[in-house]
Every structure is written in C-alpha cells, then in structure tokens.
Nucleic acid binder design. Structure first.
Lengths: 218, 218, 218, 218
DNA sequence: AATGAATGAGACTTCATTCAT
DNA sequence: TATGAATGAAGTCTCATTCAT
C-alpha cells in the first residue's frame, strides 16, 4: 500500500510500482492502471450505484481490459472497499488533527464539524457511494468498515462529551445522539449539494457548524 | 388510490379489491395478495436492497407465484414506487396537519419536527428503502418522487421562514439549509436506530426536536 | 421425481409433468426438456469430460436455452449428479434382485457379476462419466454418491463373504479386495470396450464372470 | 531424456541442467525449478484434477512465477504429458525386466502382475492422474500415450498367451481380456487404496497376483 | 533465467419479464 | 385470477498464454 491516495490494499493481488523513478525523465507519465480503475469506478458507482455499474463499464471507462482489473483487484467488491478506505482514512486523519489541537473544546469541535463538511463536499462522489452502497459490500468487509466508522464516531463523540463535562455545552442531549444529528446532515449533503449551487463548500460548512454550535449552547 | 392501506396505484394493472365489505362476515379474512406482496417486498428491500432482491424471492416470501405479482404490479419497479408512495403520502398528510394547526409557529415546527422522527422510526423499513434505493427507481418515477419530496420540503421550509420573519427563529441560516440539516438526521435514523436500543422513538424525537429548536433560537 | 428413468431429483427446482395424459392423443409427443437435457449432457460429458463441456454446448445440443436448463436443474453439477443417480439406482436394483434370489451363493454371485458387466456396457456413457468425473462433483454430492456406492459394494461383498463362510469360495483373499478386483475390471470397460469390437456384451460378461469364479475356486 | 529423474522431454523449451556437477560442492543443492514444478503439478493434478488446477496454483505451490513455468514447459498440457511419460517409462522398464527373466512363464507373469501393483501404489498420485485425466490431454499427445500404453499391454498379453500356449494357463479367456481384467484392478487402486489402510502395498500385490493366477489355473 | 502485467475469450449463473394455459 | 415454463441478455469472474523488460 505504497501511497495513501489510491492504492489497492486488501484483496489486491498484484504489486504495482507505478512509474519507478521515471517521473523526472518522462514528463507525461501515464496514469497507472489501478488509479485509472479507481477513478472510473468512483465516478460510475456514484452516478449509477454499485449494483447498476458493471465491471465491463468500469474497464471501458478506464481504458483497460477485465483481466487487468482482476489482476489488481480481487473482485468488484474490493474496488468498493478501496473507495471506502480512501475516504475513511482521509476523514479520520483530519478529525484526529483537530481533536488533538491545543485549543478550547468549543473551537476544536467547531473546526472538526466544519471541516468534515468541506471534506465531504470535496469528495462528494466518494461520500455518495459511502452512504448509498455500504450495504452492498460483502458482510465481512462491511463489518470492517463499520468498525472504522465507529472509531471515527467515538472520537467525535468524545469531543462533545468533554464539552458537556466542562459545562460549555448543553448536556441535555446524549452525546452519541448529537454526533448522529450532525452526521446525518453530512451524510445528507450528497443528496442535495450541487457544486453549481448558491453556497460554496465553506459557506455550507460554516452554516452547519453554526447550527451545531447553537444547538449545543448551554 | 382505492384503499389507503397498501393498494397499488400507478403501474398496477389489475382490478383488485377482492372481497370488499366481507370483513364483517368472515372473521379471519386472509390478507389480500397485493398487500402480502407489498409486505414481503418491503421487508426484503430493506434487508438486502432493491437490486439484491429477486422477484422470485419476493413471491416466495409472499406465498404466491410470479404470475400473481405481474398481475397486480406492472414491474418490480412498481413495487418500489408503491412503497415510496405509501411513505410519502403518510408523511405529507401528517406534516400538513401540523402546519395548518392554530398554534404559534414555534409549536407547529416543533411538533412537525418531532413527529417525522416518530413516523420514520415506526416505518423504518420504508425509510431505509427510501434513502437507500431511490436511485434505483426508473428515471421518470424518480422525477415524480422528487417532485413530491420537494413539496414536502417546501412546506417544512416555509415554517422555518415564517418563524425567521416573525423574529422567533435565528435568521442567520438559510431556511432550506435548516430543513436539510434536520432531514439529514431523520434520514440517518435508518442507519443507526435500533428498536431494542436505550431510547424510545418518542425520546429520540424529543431530543432531535430540542436540538433543532435550540439551533434556531435567536 | 415422477419417473425413475431420467427425472431430476435433488437440486432440480421445477416440477415438470412431461406430457400429461396426452401420450395416446398425440402420437408424436415431443421429448420433454429435462430428458433432452439429460441425454445431451450424458453424451457430451462422456465424449469430452465434464469440465470440458460447457453449459452452452449442452443447451445447444438439447435445442433449448440456458434459462431452461437452470429452470430444471440448479447447476451444471446437478446434471452430473442426476446422471450418477440414474446409474446407481439401476445397478443397485439389479444387484438386489440377484442377491435376493433363491439360489446357491455361487449362482447368485455369478449372475450378479455377469449382469453388472452387461449393464455397464449397455450404459457405457454413464459409466465412463461415472469413473472419470466423480471427482468433479461438489464435495457434498460426492459424499452422497460415495455413500450409495458403498452400499452397493457391501451388498456385493456380502455375497463373497457368504460363499467363503460356506466353504464354496477360496477364503484366502479378503472379500473387500475381491470386490475391488472385479469392479476394477468393470470400471475399466469404459476405457477399452468398443460396441463394434469382436465380443458382444454377453460374451465379455461371461468371460469376466468366469475369471472371477475361477479366482474364487477353493 | 537428459536425466532420468524428472526432466522435461518433449515440449520443454529450455536448456536446463542448472548446476550440473555441483552436487559435491554444495551439500544442500536446492531442488531445480523443473522438478519443483513437476512435483507441485503432480500433487495438485492428483488432488483436484487437471482442469481444476490453474497454472497460477502450480507456480505458487512450486514457489516460482508463471514466466519460469513457460520457460521450461511449452504449455500446461506438457506438464501433464511429462507426468504420464514418467510413469509409463517406469512401468515399461520394470515389465521388460520381468518378462525377459529366465524363469517359467508362470513366475514371470506373477512377478510382473504383483510388481505393477506395488509400483502403482508407490506412485499413486501419478496413477490417479493417469486414469482420470488422460482424456484431458491434447489429441496428438493422447495418441502418443495410447501407443506407448498399447506396447505395454501387448508385452503383458504375450506372457499370458505364452502360458496358454504352453498349457500352464487356462486358455478359455482371450489373453487381451485377461490383461484388461488385471489392469482394471490396478487402475482401480487409485480409487480405493489408502496408505494408512490395513494392507501394505506388498500384501495387496500378493492378493491381486494370487487372484490372477488362480483365475488362470487350467 | 525469469518477471508479472496484460490480454481476450469464455466460463457458469441470475434475472425480470412474457405467454400459453 | 393465477400458473410456471421458457427466454435472452447481462452479470461476475477465471484462466492459459504472451511479451517487454
């Protein structure tokens, strides 16, 4: 799993070394096959859903053959799992960064709440796939994803609970429920947000973070 | 829309109604075939998703044959559309009831916001199907559902806007965004709510309505 | 499983009623689809082996579509299992008939030993498939076939043991080994016997039975 | 046929021999790649059958890559052919040894008949492959194998015929049939013989040779 | 001597739907 | 009102083999 961006991890059979050291020599290195496949799959899964996207369509969009896909990914399911992993890792890393910061808990929660909105909008295809197609993942992979998701949820929840303990947040609502409240709206973004709409990602993020912080006022 | 319970509307071919008015004569009237099919489809679509449920599985679960299904419903797609229609009509009716009430806008919005939570939890299978499988509906049916959904959204939004105009709600957030914020969390219920969990539907509803109302405080 | 000849048993999904009562009315009733499929599969499996025969080839030879095959048989494996079942039932029935006869054990064994040769030659395709493709059956079906085969073996062995106890057969060789000796040669028939060869099935049967009886002389 | 152990003959492309003569210098010379491939293929073909074994599985079991396999063997088919050749040469050599001995024909036949049983059990994987997968060989290779097999059969048959001419064997049965009778049971060994069973290879060989000799008594 | 990415054909199976009865 | 046999297209995946390195 060389690079965190798009490399196949579990289930991927092959070891691929992209363009080994040739980046400087050949200015226009072609995009490696695994990345091309991930990009095509992401777009198509987002557009039509996982079950409605055939492997044939993916390889055609990526300009490779089916054999190549199965050389790098063990199954169609693996491709979906990779997309999940990519988003989960990204979000977990960012949340950890905010949660560990040296700031009052209100500021840390607010920044984290706003950032996840921007990140979700910036990866709206991934997010749409995430919320729409999780149940189409194989049971064991689903379990794994859920475990990673839970870790994320708990980190976020601990921020809420800390604020409640410190008395800076309203303690009337169970912190788990607060997290689900906020993440419901993040989840929902992929349903209604349009890049060409009136509000920029940052504006949406500010508004949603404001709503959360106001809802948590003592 | 012949009967309000579960009758097929669009796409249904047959003339049903079976033994109308015989309910009093035969104490244990068997559940009519269309209802049986709807119930089976609802359960299965919710459990495995629309694409992963075969027509064969539905008819087996309903104890009928494929011919019977196609006698009552024009297609598998129709079944899904019926499930949507059932939930949409129910929610629209309830929202209309609250919005038209003779009460201050805060009270009307709060009641509506809490009620949709309870109703969603009471029909969690329908709700899960709604949020998960909408994109699997045929384009024209999808358009129709979206139009009905928009009407619902707008009615809810108008309550928010009215409160903002009257100065009882904080006007910093665009009302459309407020609605999406709340409905994100409603949507999300089908992901995390478990009937055997710690909170009753009413308790969850109170908490979520509280969060909304606090977020809207001026 | 209406008729013992060629009806699908386990794994077969459909119920088919062949030509219901129309045999007398329509002189040239078409051969029912399941039978056509069995016949085609038998010929092809025997010619090229199970793995080398594609489902496509079978349905083409039977003049039906793939859907029809899967309507009657749950899998390609099922087809193979049916062929086994047909031969096993036939041979078991015949062996039981000879073993239960009211004759000296030498006569009963001799008749059984000769008959299995004739029956095998008469169903040489089935026999070839049996000995060549058993290991290509799914593990659980293989287990089932082996159990039936064992029952057959034991019945035959008991005849040998009885003769040894009575002193009419040489008791130097363990009876199980005697059975494997004879059945090795039966098994082998599908490798070398040609219908257009010098010896008729009956002649081969007499010779092989003679060899067995001589080998068993005290 | 460069080395008698396991070297590829026909179809092998490469010049092998690797580290010839170094056996004395390096005490623990690694097993050469072609042998490793043959051993892996033999085990896998025997376990799962030829068609069910993929080239990928063979190279993984042998600890090499596909390129290496195709460097030494022209095709998967070639591997199978090599396995056949190895067994055929071994058996022919042994039969020739017994047939040419300076002994009465009864002794020569008996020894040959017993020896082929022991040799078959000692190479049970090869034997299983032989009897199960011959028909999966390419037509021209199949023809070649059959020719070698026929030569073997004829040598054995001539022993029977000689004994019949000399009057030491019963002449009622055609000698070809006698050979098929015995070889059927040898063939069958791979179906039922288990190394952990009650009888040793020698004991089985004695019993089967006894049965044959008794069957041939005048 | 050896690698392993890539091919392309073909494998088995599923499925929504139709239609004669 | 209901059956269930039959279709035909499409689905995912496997595999022996090639070839540039």
């Amino acid at each position: 799993m060389p690079t965190p961006e798009a490399a196949p991890r579990s289930g991927a059979r092959g070891q691929h070394g992209a363009a080994r050291g040739t980046a400087a020599q050949r200015p226009a290195a072609p995009v490696p096959v695994p990345q091309r496949l991930m990009a095509a799959a992401t777009r198509l899964f987002s557009e039509r859903g996982y079950d409605r996207t055939s492997v044939q369509e993916i390889v055609e969009a990526a300009g490779v053959t089916k054999g190549a896909l199965y050389h790098y990914f063990g199954s169609k399911d693996d491709l979906l799992h990779e997309i999940y992993g990519r988003l989960l890792r990204l979000q977990q890393d960012r949340l950890d960064g905010y949660a560990d910061a040296d700031e009052p808990v209100e500021a840390r929660l607010r920044r984290a709440a706003a950032d996840v909105v921007v990140t979700t909008i910036d990866n709206l295809d991934d997010a749409r796939i995430f919320f729409r197609s999780m149940h189409q993942l194989s049971p064991e992979k689903q379990k794994q994803v859920r475990a990673e998701r839970r870790r994320y949820h708990e980190r976020f929840r601990d921020l809420v609970a800390e604020g409640q303990r410190r008395g800076v947040f309203n303690a009337a609502t169970p912190p788990d429920l607060v997290v689900d409240y906020h993440f419901g709206s993040v989840h929902h973004l992929s349903t209604w947000y349009r890049p060409d709409g009136r509000l920029s990602p940052q504006e949406v993020a500010e508004h949603l973070a404001d709503l959360l912080m106001r809802a948590l006022r003592p």
